[in-house]
């Protein structure tokens, strides 16, 4: 029913924009990753794989990458452990308060990242709220230093930031579980726990997958929380990229790392999408 002119008018502008501002930048990123920097700090367009080779040869990068994956894994796990029961409670037990409770999760989802990261900094700092509290109760007498500037602080902060992102798709998938299936399961004699295990959990798997992907991918690419609360032992792979684009001035190497991250993210997304489809019962 829509004319050819109509379809062109709505398709071409965003297509052009996306080509110029998304496709082209990714392509440039890809190109950069094969170039190198001369001693005079100029970009040399001699195509080679040295940046990629360096990634695998230099133990620093591998160490940080492994740490980043460990941190992302921990955040994902914690966000699921917090987000799933919360989503389950809202979907099945919250009754009339559901709407209010849902909004209470949505607020921290969209509310300022920086503000929330900063809040943790003030809590965990050596003269921060937590240390003040512990000294006030005479549990400790000197500030506990490891709260701030540690992988622990990064994990805590990012769990706080990304739990709502994990919650959201899980909640959506739980809301999609047909309630008559739950009733049927009870009717057939399954206990609430067994109903959860055999009906609800499998049907909410797509949500779990999507939520886990959110938490993992966003944590892996985070460079702000490590700067805010991480310290040297909390440095993650994105921080290396930032420094390569800043003081270290090695854009090609930074581009190579970024491109690997991009590839990882896209692979993860495609994998979850496929898994999601497999577990989605229509």
């Amino acid at each position: 029913m829509y004319s050819r002119a109509y379809k062109s008018a709505v398709t071409i502008p965003p297509l052009l924009w996306v080509t110029f501002f998304l496709t082209a930048p990714y392509a440039i990123l890809f190109c950069y990753s094969f170039w190198s920097v001369s001693p005079l700090q100029t970009i040399v367009h001699n195509w080679n794989l040295q940046n990629y080779a360096q990634l695998f040869r230099n133990p620093l990068y591998l160490t940080v990458l492994l740490r980043s994956i460990r941190i992302a894994g921990a955040v994902t796990l914690l966000a699921l452990l917090l987000g799933y029961p919360l989503a389950y409670y809202l979907s099945f037990h919250a009754a009339k308060r559901k709407d209010l409770l849902y909004q209470l999760v949505i607020i921290p989802l969209w509310a300022s990242y920086l503000v929330r990261g900063y809040a943790w900094k003030t809590i965990l700092g050596s003269d921060g709220v937590l240390n003040g509290f512990l000294q006030y109760l005479h549990i400790t007498h000197r500030p506990v230093e490891f709260f701030l500037y540690s992988p622990f602080a990064v994990i805590l902060t990012l769990t706080h930031i990304y739990t709502p992102f994990t919650f959201l798709p899980i909640y959506a998938s739980l809301e999609h579980v047909p309630r008559n299936l739950v009733e049927a399961s009870h009717d057939l004699g399954a206990s609430p726990f067994s109903t959860f295990l055999r009906v609800i959990l499998p049907l909410s798997l797509p949500g779990i997958l999507a939520g886990a992907t959110f938490a993992f991918v966003l944590t892996l690419g985070d460079f702000l929380a490590p700067l805010l609360v991480g310290g040297p032992s909390g440095v993650m792979i994105s921080n290396i990229v930032v420094s390569l684009f800043g003081a270290a001035y090695n854009w090609p190497l930074g581009a190579a790392i970024s491109f690997c991250m991009l590839l990882l993210v896209v692979t993860l997304l495609l994998a979850t999408e496929r898994l999601e489809k497999r577990f989605t019962i229509s």
Partner: peptide, 18 residues
């Protein structure tokens, strides 16, 4: 839709290079 899930650093960097 990619920027919705892609870490900001990648979007930021690639646009910087552009």
């Amino acid at each position: 839709l990619l920027p919705l899930i892609l870490p900001g650093i990648i979007t930021g960097l690639s646009l910087l290079m552009l």
